[in-house]
Simulated scan of single mutants.
Amino acid sequence: MISVIMGSASDKAIAEKVIKILKEFDVPYEVKVISAHRALNVLEDYVGSTDSKIFIAMAGKAAHLAGVVAGMTVKPVIGIPIKSSTMDGLDSLLSTVQMPKGIPVATVAIDGGENAALLAISMLAIEDEALREKLVKYRKDLEAAVVQADKDLDLN
């Protein structure tokens, strides 16, 4: 199972992108809203009690959620920096990616919900052959779409 944690309910649109991909691959998940700053005890209880294999944590502005989760577990954590009104998400990106030695957070692009889900699926696919096959098909479908777009291009 993958745990999807939003720092705020305002991150719902990005969480929906994650969930769409997880559903497409039939990967079980649970979604929570838990602020690292406003509900630290709740976050600690949740991280310590869930059976999730991978955490996807998204937050904007200070964006410490993924790092705090990574500090509470040795399970993989994927951070999604959320675009904020303050600095177009650069503040979130830097807060998520600049982790101290020993506490890694895999970080995707600002608002990169789809890639966070795909990275988590790739991690699970290391030991799940059926999931790996779905991921290979997904990539082949991406390639086919690019080839088709080239064929459909009518600028010559």
Rank of each mutant, 00 (worst) to 15 (best):
H64I: 07
L65Q: 04
A66N: 05
A66L: 03
A66T: 05
G67V: 08
G67H: 05
G67N: 12
G67Y: 00
V68T: 15
V68N: 05
V68P: 01
V69D: 06
V69N: 11
A70D: 08
G71L: 08
M72F: 13
M72E: 09
M72P: 00
M72W: 11
T73W: 04
T73R: 08
T73K: 10
T73H: 09
T73I: 11
V74R: 11
V74L: 11
V74C: 10
K75I: 04
P76A: 13
P76Q: 10
P76L: 07
V77K: 04
V77N: 02
V77A: 09
I78G: 01
I78N: 00
I78L: 05
G79T: 02
G79M: 04
G79A: 09
G79D: 03
G79K: 03
G79E: 02
I80T: 06
P81S: 07
P81H: 05
P81I: 01
P81V: 02
P81T: 02
P81R: 01
I82A: 01
I82M: 01
I82K: 01
I82N: 00
I82L: 03
I82Q: 00
K83E: 11
K83N: 06
K83W: 02
S84P: 01
S85F: 01
S85G: 15
S85K: 02
T86G: 05
T86I: 13
M87D: 13
M87R: 15
M87T: 15
M87N: 14
D88Y: 06
D88A: 10
G89S: 13
L90E: 11
L90R: 07
L90I: 14
D91S: 14
D91L: 11
D91N: 14
D91H: 15
S92Q: 10
S92R: 04
L93M: 13
L93D: 02
L93V: 14
L93W: 02
L93K: 04
L93R: 02
L93S: 05
L94P: 15
L94R: 10
L94A: 15
S95I: 12
T96H: 07
T96C: 13
T96F: 09
T96A: 13
V97S: 08
V97P: 00
Q98K: 14
Q98G: 12
Q98L: 15
M99L: 13
M99T: 07
M99G: 10
P100F: 07
K101W: 15
K101Y: 15
G102M: 07
G102T: 09
G102P: 14
I103H: 09
P104E: 12
P104S: 11
V105H: 02
V105C: 12
A106G: 14
A106R: 00
T107E: 03
T107Q: 03
T107K: 02
V108F: 02
V108C: 09
A109C: 14
A109F: 09
A109N: 14
A109M: 12
I110W: 02
I110G: 07
D111E: 05
D111I: 05
D111P: 11
D111C: 05
D111Q: 03
G112V: 04
G112R: 04
G112A: 11
G112N: 08
G113K: 03
E114A: 13
E114R: 08
E114Q: 13
E114W: 02
N115K: 04
N115Q: 12
N115A: 04
N115L: 05
N115V: 04
A116M: 08
A116Q: 10
A116C: 12
A117W: 00
A117C: 10
A117F: 02
L118N: 03
L118A: 05
L118R: 07
L119H: 09
